[in-house]
Design a protein around this nucleic acid. Structure first.
Lengths: 224, 224
DNA sequence: ACCTGAACACCGTTCAAGT
DNA sequence: ACCTGAACACCGTTCAAGT
């Protein structure tokens, strides 16, 4: 009836994703959801890959960046944690992250924010670049790992773990007790601890240990 | 002719993966490679998911752990870098990491090694658990991100980046100059810097900054 | 036991043809 | 311009039947 538009397609895609999960989203079902023939979608979207990219962009638009002016360490922590909260709700993002193109448009906002904060704080371009990549990769890895460990997807029951891997067995319950948020924040804090312990390119003094290590806890607490 | 065995299947799977990539590996093509009907494979392997799990295990067997006795920071760096080198060669591992089960059997060796090293060094179980998860997630994230950024998969050419994201544009070339190994090591070192700057549960003194920060470089150099 | 043939219920994508 | 019908070249998985 009414002609198809990209916004319609994106909305229907997200609806389908929410209702049936990643495996429930096919070009055919999408067309069905829109009341059209499968081929009709291809007039407006060149590819399934492009479709997923549009969906990712729509979701990542909801990442909120804190006001500039905060201490850069806290600001970065808040921004990345916001990204985590937004993306974590959509399991399919981890799945589609591998197809490339997802790292495109909207996530640039986050990248710019992180890099800018780091450079403002006195890191060299090279240091900032390295750290930014590390943070991004950690976020991606956490999303993927959380997905792989998700209930119902637990790895095959493994034999003889107790004798062969005593430390793993002793420590594993501790990890299970932590919420996903806690796990993510803990790792992010270690990463930021490492980054902000590095010597600055040009700042106050030589200052390798300029902040007490309790900052890691307070920065985490500010967001929770 | 000769009856099928799981080792035969695994070997054929890896052959196919190497020759044609992830998309070239289907149950049907695998059966073809083995000279059997598609259904024959299901006598020996219950699932495609189980097949992928077997393949992952075969590959991750090649991860080499350093001799115990080294300084734990260096030991962990070497072990994780070995894992990186082994897994990085197989792009399909990132793709299949999401299906769960992959984190099962063989990768336990690496986990046990990391956790044991950390606990021996004086970290509490809880600290070790958190850090181990962070390291693992960083490794996964790097593999996935490297895959997504791989040549030929570059994100859609984005419009107007230069004005909207000046820092990203200035810094991006610096990242492109780094090899994959360098990128990975840089992030890993930041992570370990953060971890080993944390206060120990029970060790020598209070010792928050017990090592000079140049260690981050030397640990990386020891492996290259 | 081990395997085959044939089918079921799907995919993404294309393309001539319709309005 | 926008859409449909029908097809092409695939998937993973199952199951009765063969040897």
């Amino acid at each position: 009836m009414t002609p198809l538009t990209r916004p319609h397609i994106v909305a229907a895609g997200l609806r389908l994703l929410e209702r049936e999960g990643v495996d429930g989203l096919s070009m055919r079902k999408l067309a069905d959801e829109l009341g059209k023939a499968p081929a009709a979608v291809y007039r407006h979207v060149s590819d399934k890959r492009e479709l997923m990219s549009l969906l990712f962009n729509e979701v990542s638009r909801r990442i909120v960046l804190p006001d500039a002016g905060d201490d850069p360490r806290t600001a970065i922590a808040e921004a990345v944690q916001s990204a985590h909260r937004v993306l974590e709700k959509h399991g399919w993002i981890a799945t589609e992250m591998l197809n490339g193109g997802l790292l495109g448009a909207t996530s640039m906002r986050l990248s710019e924010f992180i890099l800018d904060s780091l450079v403002r704080d006195g890191l060299s371009d090279a240091q900032a670049a390295r750290l930014h990549v590390a943070i991004w990769e950690y976020l991606v890895g956490h999303l993927v790992a959380a997905r792989a460990t998700a209930p119902g997807l637990s790895p095959h029951p493994m034999a003889g773990t107790d004798e062969d891997y005593p430390t793993v067995c002793r420590v594993a319950p501790l990890v299970a007790e932590m919420s996903d948020q806690e796990r993510f924040s803990a790792g992010l804090m270690v990463l930021l601890d490492g980054a902000f312990a590095e010597p600055r390119a040009s700042h106050g003094g030589t200052a390798a240990c300029e902040e007490p290590s309790s900052v890691s806890r307070s920065a985490a607490g500010a967001v929770e």
